[in-house]
């Protein structure tokens, strides 16, 4: 009986502690943030090690690419980036010049840190987050864009020395400035917690959209948190009629959000934004970004 009353007191006390933690976290308390950072630096390396050991099993289950060496990973990430550039841009010339930009080391182009996913968050709370095995020691900072071979995946929200946590674009708290490929209409793409469905609201609801329209990232100043021109997904359905102010288009993410493995963190933007590169250059020899060396 004594046990029972102790349990009752305990559960009420712990409930109050939880409520206090929730309040502190919502107010952005540094103490909770510090606790989170501390837990991350302790648990992160353990997750990396276990994930590496469990990788064959997980890969088999996901039927994705197998484990590779470090330079192999770098090569994969570069190829992925080029593919991203190719799929998200509107014409071939653009992707070719972007590819050229990528190859011009020291002049411009995205620099990408490759990383592997080591942990996934539960989907029960309509969240979407992953931990990757690269951290502040690999020059990763918060608000950097994270991409996979198919498009934008999310942004870095927390960094420990050896791991980082990424908020996926499918997280119910995520909102990405987006535009329609081709018509260039701007809108906001929100996550819904589902790994295969996001909702898009255009600034101008009278614009005509159709299923299959591609959605790409609008881009933020300095490319943080989101770099411009990255593939986000394709429209698969609608809620509401054209012209209705609260019309929503449902978007299927370009990347396989529930089975991510190799990703790249964009640590440096191209000096010239990919959007500007769409203008055909007046002559091939007069590229302004080219520096003699």
């Amino acid at each position: 009986m004594r046990d029972e009353s102790r349990a009752r007191v305990l559960v009420i006390a712990l409930l109050l502690v939880s409520a206090s933690l929730i309040m502190l976290d919502i107010r952005g308390s540094a103490a909770v943030g510090g606790l989170r950072a501390l837990t991350g630096s302790i648990v992160g390396p353990i997750e990396s090690a276990i994930a590496a050991a469990a990788s064959p099993f997980v890969s088999m289950a996901q039927s994705v690419t197998s484990f590779g060496a470090v330079d192999e990973r770098e090569r994969i990430a570069t190829e992925e980036l080029q593919r991203v550039a190719g799929t998200s841009q509107e014409d071939k010339a653009v992707s070719e010049s972007l590819e050229k930009v990528l190859k011009t080391a020291g002049v411009g182009g995205y620099s990408v840190i490759p990383a592997r996913v080591v942990a996934y968050g539960s989907t029960q709370n309509f969240g979407g987050s992953i931990t990757i095995d690269a951290g502040s020691l690999d020059q990763i900072e918060t608000d950097m864009s994270v991409i996979s071979g198919d498009g934008l995946v999310g942004r870095v929200v927390q960094v420990t020395p050896t791991t980082s946590t990424v908020e996926l674009i499918t997280d119910s708290k995520s909102v990405v400035a987006a535009r329609i490929e081709g018509s260039r209409q701007a809108g906001a793409l929100s996550g819904t917690g589902s790994s295969n469905r996001m909702s898009l609201k255009l600034l101008d609801p009278t614009v005509s959209l159709k299923e299959g329209d591609k959605v790409v990232s609008f881009g933020s100043p300095d490319g943080r948190p989101y770099a411009p021109g990255l593939a986000l997904g394709a429209i698969v359905g609608f809620q509401g009629e054209q012209g209705q102010a609260d019309r929503i288009a449902f978007v299927q993410p370009a990347a396989a959000m529930s089975a991510l493995d190799v990703v790249g963190v964009i640590v440096q933007q191209s000096r010239t934004e990919p959007r500007d590169l769409q203008k055909p250059s007046p002559s091939p020899s007069s590229t302004p970004t080219e520096t003699p060396n």
């Binding site: 502690v17 989170r36 648990v43 942990a119 987050s129 931990t131 927390q158 791991t163 946590t165």
Partner: peptide, 9 residues
């Protein structure tokens, strides 16, 4: 613990 990004508590 990572990758949790929800509200702590």
């Amino acid at each position: 613990m990572p990758p949790a990004i929800g509200t702590v508590g």
